[in-house]
Nucleic acid binder design. Structure first.
Lengths: 313, 313
DNA sequence: CCACCGCACAACCAATCGTTGTAGTCCTAC
DNA sequence: GTAGGACTACAACGATTGGTTGTGCGGTGG
């Protein structure tokens, strides 16, 4: 429908720089006639004239001048897109679980303080997929809870605990605990807590299994994961169902749902995020990222008393 | 050479969102086989696999996840490029003389304080071309010195003096005046001042003609305009040749040329920039831009004593 | 185990793209 | 004024691309 041809855009930029179709044709190793055709096609698509053809070459029209920087931006975007999948000299590729949790916030923070570092964010299924991708070099780092009981990290992969993320309870307005400012884990015994999307076998599910066992909670991890919206809808309407969300998660929900975040105490369950990377990964941005995480951790000494994390963490 | 196809990129994004090639094909009104072909071609060009094909649809690979935001950025860039030449709902299009002078600085400043306003910057030949473009609606506003002697603005075009830009003298290290902190216009009598690029008939040339006549200077406007670099080279090597540059111009030159900027006094010649626009232009950004210029002018009361501008300004 | 669902491959056809050859236009020099 | 040079547009042809229909293959679920 739109169908702008990037080769035509490239030809346009080259011709604008050269000032003559023939020179642009030489640059691109095609004939002058092909340049003429490409630019004519681009003009037809855009519906405006880009060049005024004179006997001494081709000069940009006003529309051509206005289009030129956008054309350059388009080609730069193409460059970046190509580079994003080229092995070597590509952006730092980090695996995080979702875009709303604490680790994603750390990534955003790193991006703010180091805007020159190109970042690509991906999400893998579980820690096994993440470790495999790290070992193969497909990704450079991963935020994961490491590890499950009886799980061992391979020799060539290193891990550092970087962030303990407190969990809060999320309830609807009609829930028994909706009015509470804080609740204790003991008070949650017998309540139904729903964690969809924690597929069995993942480290995420292992975390909740451990939490369940340690405090006798009733956590339901069954049911297909239809995304976050239906989950919130269900929570909002339920008197008995609640869910855990991380303190830093930036969920957005309609104001009229009346959802409540409630702090959990004695202890506060925290999710133990570690950064995983391959020992011999020499990506320069990886070192900078680890430095950033270290310094951030040093300045924000979280209290570890009164919190709970799995024994295997 | 590179040759990424935007239709293929669009198909990739659609398929990634849909999760199934068939659904993407329906969205794009092509067949599933065409989607398969386009994505296979894109994967061949990029050299990586973007989807894992399963019996329940197509899921993004890690590379596909990394590529996806870049693909979206590419399509957005295409949108903006298309919009930049579409009449109606397009960016505010302003004509300024070059990217380094004071008016260009005003535009940058406006862009900083109003980042939501899309701006396109073009450069027209002279004030006649600018007025014609303003009347036809091809551009929305123009920074020009208005007007030359005996020149009258059309009824439907309005102008407001927005910025008087002081000129400085630029000399090489070997020039007689190189050591001076300031010079008077009277001291410049007899010196050769070179202003290439001020083509006869332009308001720029008229300004220098007036300056010449008023103070008996020897200004050379002859010679072809080879751009700014050869000019600077010539100035740097000359004992007798100098040129005028605007105070705010952001010329960059090699440090080893040793060029000097020297203030001019008694009086300081200023170039009288006006903003021109069509009275019935309703572009919302135009009003915002004029407001910005007005407020900026109010807060930065430049002294008008001791300066010189042409009588017709 | 079988039926179904979803993607890939093959063959065919149409449209596009790049090439060569040529015509038209503007500028300049004699 | 006219001839020549420089530059782009148009025409015709061949090669390549891209879309369609028809079919095959593999994983999934009952």
């Amino acid at each position: 429908m739109a169908g702008m041809d990037l080769d035509a855009v490239r030809t346009f930029v080259t011709a604008a720089d050269a000032g003559r179709f023939q020179d642009a044709a030489d640059d691109l190793s095609i004939t002058q006639q092909a340049v003429s055709k490409r630019i004519a096609a681009l003009e037809r698509i855009l519906g405006v004239q880009l060049f005024t053809r004179t006997a001494r070459g081709a000069k940009l029209t006003i529309d051509g001048q206005a289009f030129l920087p956008h054309a350059r931006a388009l080609l730069r975007a193409e460059e970046r897109a190509m580079a994003s999948v080229q092995p070597g000299s590509r952006a730092l590729r980090v695996d995080v679980l979702g875009r709303r949790g604490g680790p994603a916030g750390l990534l955003r923070e790193f991006h703010r303080t180091h805007p020159e570092v190109e970042l690509d964010v991906v999400t893998l299924f579980d820690i096994d997929a993440a470790v495999a991708a790290i070992r193969s070099g497909t990704i450079d780092a991963s935020f994961r809870a490491v590890s499950m009981p009886g799980w061992r990290l391979p020799e060539d992969v290193e891990a550092a605990r970087v962030f303990d993320e407190p969990l809060q309870l999320l309830t609807g307005p009609a829930h028994e605990l909706a009015a509470a400012r804080t609740v204790t884990l003991a008070e949650l015994v017998g309540h139904r807590i729903w964690i969809p999307g924690a597929a069995p076998g993942t480290e995420w599910a292992a975390y909740y299994d451990d939490l369940t066992a340690a405090f006798g909670l009733t956590i339901e991890t069954t049911g297909p994961d239809f995304g976050v919206e239906p989950l919130l809808d269900t929570i909002a309407d339920s008197r008995s169902l609640a869910t855990f969300v991380s303190e830093q998660s930036r969920l957005v929900w309609p104001a009229d749902q009346g959802l409540r975040r409630i702090d959990v105490r004695d202890p506060t369950p925290v999710y133990p995020h570690s950064l995983l990377w391959r020992r011999d990964n020499l990506h320069p941005a990886l070192a900078a990222f680890r430095d950033h995480l270290r310094s951030r951790q040093a300045e924000a000494e979280h209290p570890t008393t009164g919190t709970w994390a799995p024994a295997w963490a």
